[in-house]
Simulated scan of single mutants.
Amino acid sequence: MSLLWVAVIAASVLSFAQKWIGYQAPPDVLERPRVSRVTTLLPIALLGALVATQAATSGSEIVLDARLAALAAAAGLLWARAPFLVVVIGAAVVAAGLRALGWS
């Protein structure tokens, strides 16, 4: 068995153990205001970090390209309360247009 498979199996076991430990937490701990607020905001922070990483980096370099402009267009459309489908299509049109103009 290669080192890669050992790492995959170890990560799977650790992930399962972490999930199981989470289920063992007493309900009164989870209902505390601070814990409740953190668990509510954590997915938003993680998603924001993922979007920022995917939109502004390429490998280990920070890049400014059509993805960032498309993200800005999507943010503007969301701010204007456009429907989600309009936001997705608008961002795609901005990215495609900029890439067609040679700004990759």
Rank of each mutant, 00 (worst) to 15 (best):
M1T: 05
M1V: 02
S2Y: 00
S2R: 04
L3R: 15
L4K: 14
L4E: 13
L4P: 00
W5E: 01
W5A: 05
W5K: 08
W5Q: 07
W5M: 04
V6L: 12
V6W: 14
A7Q: 14
V8R: 10
V8N: 04
V8M: 08
V8H: 00
I9G: 04
A10E: 05
A10L: 14
A10G: 05
S12Y: 10
S12L: 15
V13W: 01
L14D: 05
L14W: 08
L14Y: 03
S15D: 09
F16I: 10
A17W: 13
W20I: 10
W20S: 08
W20Y: 12
W20G: 00
G22F: 01
Q24K: 14
Q24R: 13
Q24D: 03
A25Y: 09
P27Y: 07
P27H: 07
P27V: 05
D28S: 12
D28Q: 13
V29E: 10
V29I: 15
L30D: 04
E31V: 01
R32D: 11
R32E: 11
R32T: 08
P33E: 06
R34I: 15
R34A: 15
V35W: 05
V35R: 07
S36M: 09
R37E: 13
V38I: 14
T39H: 11
T40L: 15
L41E: 04
L41Q: 09
L42F: 13
L42P: 01
I44T: 12
A45L: 14
A45K: 00
A45W: 13
L47H: 03
G48W: 01
A49M: 11
A49I: 12
L50T: 12
L50H: 02
V51D: 03
V51S: 06
V51K: 07
A52W: 15
Q54L: 15
A55Y: 02
A56R: 08
T57R: 11
S58E: 11
G59L: 01
L64Y: 12
L64I: 15
D65T: 00
D65Q: 07
D65M: 08
D65V: 07
L68H: 02
L68Y: 04
A70D: 06
L71T: 02
A73W: 04
A73M: 10
A74K: 03
A74W: 02
A75P: 04
A75R: 01
A75L: 10
A75D: 02
G76W: 03
L77T: 03
L78N: 09
L78V: 09
L78K: 06
A80L: 15
F84M: 10
L85P: 06
V86N: 03
V86D: 03
V86W: 10
I89C: 06
A91K: 05
A92Q: 10
A92N: 11
A92F: 14
V93N: 00
V94Y: 01
A95I: 06
A96S: 12
G97V: 01
G97N: 03
L98G: 04
L98V: 00
A100W: 13
L101T: 08
G102F: 05
G102E: 05
G102H: 07
W103M: 09
S104F: 11
